[in-house]
Design a protein around this nucleic acid. Structure first.
Length: 809
DNA sequence: GTAGGGTTAG
């Protein structure tokens, strides 16, 4: 309430009227000061028990208590409204009175008001002194207002107070909090006398701006010049270790803490728990935690966070239970914020929801951090509507909340919504951070064009994020690979200084989806040589490479090596890759057997893989079984319906084709419209299946017809199948004839709009059909051009009549 | 008689 009531600008009102009721619309309330008399630090012996401003006046007048005593009592007890009432009763010529009042405002977080009162003080004739300025600088720091802070600094130079140690320390702290490290360093450098607090201000300042290394260097330097660190130094130093994730430095500081006798300090203990938790050593965090006799909520919360950040989710739950049962403490806002990621990771949707409900009941909402944690939680639990529900209601959204919503969209495949939100904040000149880009880049990889991909790459490079941030660099590699530019993907990979396991997994997958499985295998071995330990995803990339490039023996060898050599249990994704591989060999019995023997429950993706294998080997019965299973798990799997329908069509089973069509209509499943895109001069040209009657594309149509005629002259082994398909489609509408498929439009357009001899790149939203695949092969030979078609799964590199996929996809 | 540096959170 105080913040609202005090938001009037009192400056420059001299001798302001007494604030009897701060709100003119509110009648005097005798209970208003109730909390003042029941506050934890009030009443103290010989201090006034004020219940009403008028009453307080009478009380004060009739007792020996001075107004100054009353003011200080109210300030000490945090009863700022009462303090203001008393202050307005007082003489305003005394600097000391103003100092106390400004101190009270700052202590209560009323920074703007503190600055306003400072101006009132100056204009009222009271002269600010060396005590006033530290309060004022704290207010500037609280507002994170470098501008206000610099103004104060200027004034200090003018009045000659800029050499005072206390004031310099306040200046350092203000500059560091406002993020202006250089100014903080300048003040520190120019001080003729530095004390312990000056050093602490630097150590904590570096830590605050996220420069853990400088903070630790500063701490070391401070010891080397003979200053003995205190609890403040250690708390900041431990915070610096947390940033660096450097447990070794943390342990060193822990030793110093013990040597200096601070191991029983509750805040130092909490910082130790926090440091060990963040440095990946939850066991040491536990050890420190268990030593604490009287654990407060902050220590409990730090321990809960330690468990969560070390993926010990179930221990985080039992820790909260113990906190209630043994510690007799109720979860607070921070406990909830800590627990939500654990709920998301363990799929505990109900627990997360009950935390949400409890937060509402306890009045913790609205709260920006908790709301953001909820958006993140619902996003990870695939409850996107709930995430949106929380997100849209956040008042004063900040970058973290936007990032959470963007990440939620991306994780759930809502790429265009993610891009829309991203562009919205981008155009509104919001300063974005590494997390924003790390979140949005996978969406770019899925839906954008190569030129847009290049643009976003340029943006992150300009911001200095593409070389310094491994997550972003990895996303960029994937982006280029998915946009069809494998060479640039490789260049980015080679240029990375700190490659992690994800970088290697990404580049192995990049070559895999482009059909260069041999290179994927080479890279895998290079990764091992470089001492990088492969993980589950590495084998998804590697087995995909073997499957896409048809390297059957190698695939089995790597699959068997997972547990044997790397102690990795194959997951469902690995079984999926192997099934694709078996499907390729045409051994459908083995494929069936493989599914039966699998130690995991088959997913829709597994059945989809069997369906694809059945189609490739023309086994309608098995295809029906596979489709039935797949559709029971994913009723809206469009590809499944289409694949089966095409098989019926090829077999001339028109009634079954019709049945599927009816089923699809009944369930509201629309066939995905085939669409191909080609880029030219930063513009994306989009083609859909059409019959060529559109005048705008007549030239492309002419080219397409000429090439089609030329390719048709060489009859091929697929002629029989092509004729069958044609008859089906002709019974419906003209654009579905394979000759009119979007990819042929794309290829034709690519051929005439790019430089002679250069590669033609076409991207397609669904899988390429056999006719078009055949067409592209012939065109590549005829025109002596490499044609790359990226469909929804792989990139087909057509060259000299052959395709990198080996005709299996 | 007043002042500076500190613990858990997206």
């Amino acid at each position: 309430m105080a913040a609202t009531l005090l938001s009037h600008n009192y400056f420059p009102v001299f001798n302001a009227p007494r604030i009897v009721s701060l709100n003119p619309f509110e009648p005097p309330n005798p209970n208003r000061y109730h909390y003042a008399v029941t506050g934890p630090r009030f009443p103290k012996p010989n201090q006034p028990q004020l219940t009403h401003s008028n009453a307080s006046k009478t009380l004060i007048e009739s007792s020996n208590i001075t107004l100054m005593d009353a003011l200080r009592s109210f300030i000490d007890s945090g009863s700022i409204e009462n303090a203001l009432h008393v202050f307005e009763e007082m003489n305003h010529s005394d600097t000391f009175t103003w100092n106390i009042m400004i101190k009270g405002l700052v202590q209560n977080g009323l920074f703007k008001e503190a600055i306003n009162y400072f101006h009132r003080m100056e204009f009222g004739g009271a002269r600010p002194d060396k005590f006033t300025y530290p309060f004022l600088l704290k207010a500037c720091a609280g507002l994170l207002s470098l501008k206000e802070g610099e103004k104060v600094h200027g004034k200090l130079i003018k009045v000659g107070l800029d050499l005072d140690v206390y004031i310099c320390n306040s200046l350092i702290s203000m500059y560091m909090k406002a993020g202006c490290v250089e100014s903080g360093e300048n003040v520190f450098e120019e001080m003729s006398v530095r004390d312990l607090v000056s050093w602490n201000a630097m150590v904590s300042g570096y830590q605050l701006v996220g420069d853990g290394l400088s903070s630790l260097v500063c701490l070391r330097e401070m010891v080397s010049v003979g200053i003995r660190p205190d609890r403040f130094s250690f708390i900041s130093g431990l915070g610096a270790c947390s940033i660096q994730g450097c447990g070794r430095n943390g342990k060193e500081i822990h030793c110093q803490v013990i040597r200096n006798g601070f191991e029983m300090d509750p805040r130092v203990e909490t910082s130790l728990i926090d440091m060990y938790g963040k440095c990946g050593n939850a066991t040491y965090a536990e050890r420190v935690f268990n030593m604490i006799v009287d654990k407060n909520i902050v220590a409990w919360n730090a321990m809960v966070a330690g468990y969560v950040s070390n993926a010990r989710f179930y221990e985080s739950f039992s820790c909260v239970k113990k906190m209630q049962d043994v510690g007799k403490l109720m979860p607070d806002l921070i406990t909830m914020i800590n627990l939500l990621p654990a709920c998301a990771q363990t799929g505990a949707l109900l627990m997360g929801k009950s935390i949400h409900a409890s937060a509402i009941r306890k009045g913790f909402l609205p709260h920006i951090v908790l709301e953001t944690a909820l958006v993140d939680f619902y996003g990870r639990c695939r409850k996107l509507k709930l995430a949106e529900h929380v997100f849209t209601r956040i008042n004063g959204k900040n970058l973290a909340s936007w990032n959470a919503m963007i990440a939620a969209y991306v994780q759930n495949g809502w790429y265009s919504e993610a891009l829309e939100l991203f562009l919205d904040i981008w155009y509104n000149s919001v300063k974005l951070d590494a997390i924003t880009f790390a979140s949005i880049l996978p969406a770019y990889a899925e839906v954008t064009s190569l030129s847009e991909g290049r643009q976003i790459h340029a943006v992150v490079t300009k911001l200095g994020l593409s070389s310094s941030n491994t997550i972003i660099s990895n996303s960029i590699i994937y982006l280029y690979a998915k946009c069809g530019d494998l060479q640039t993907a490789r260049r980015c990979f080679d240029g990375m200084v700190c490659k992690d396991v994800v970088s290697w997994n990404t580049i192995i997958m990049a070559y895999a989806i482009h059909g260069f499985g041999r290179i994927s295998i080479q890279l895998f071995h290079k990764m091992i040589e470089n001492g990088i330990k492969p993980n589950k995803s590495t084998f998804v990339s590697l087995l995909s490479a073997c499957s896409i490039s048809g390297m059957v023996d190698e695939g089995w060898e790597y699959f068997n090596s997972m547990k044997r050599d790397y102690d990795i249990d194959p997951g469902i994704e690995h079984f999926g890759c192997m099934l694709d591989l078996i499907g390729r060999t045409g051994n459908l019995d083995l494929a069936k057997h493989f599914i039966e023997e699998m130690p995991l429950v088959p997913t829709a993706r597994i059945w989809g893989s069997l369906l694809a294998a059945s189609r490739k080997n023309n086994d309608i019965e098995l295809a029906e079984v596979a489709a039935k299973h797949a559709l029971s798990l994913e009723h809206d799997n469009t590809g499944c319906y289409i694949l089966l329908s095409n098989m019926y069509a090829e077999a001339g089973r028109w009634e079954d084709v019709e049945k599927i069509r009816t089923l699809m209509i009944r369930d509201g499943i629309a066939k995905t419209m085939g669409c191909s895109t080609v880029e030219k001069d930063y513009k994306v040209h989009r083609f859909v299946n059409q019959d060529g009657s559109n005048a705008q594309v007549s030239m492309v149509n002419d080219v397409k017809n000429i090439i089609t005629k030329m390719t048709a002259e060489e009859e091929d082994v697929y002629a029989h199948r092509t004729t069958k398909l044609r008859r089906t489609d002709l019974t419906r509408k003209k654009p579905n004839v394979p000759e009119n498929h979007s990819v042929r439009w794309g290829i034709s357009f690519g051929l005439i709009s790019t430089e002679l001899g250069s590669t033609v790149l076409v991207r397609k939203n669904i899988r390429i059909c056999e006719d078009c695949h055949n067409f592209a092969k012939k065109v590549s030979k005829m025109c002596k051009r490499e044609i790359v078609v990226g469909d929804s799964k792989v990139f087909h590199h057509f060259q000299d009549g052959n395709c990198s996929c080996g005709d299996y996809w």
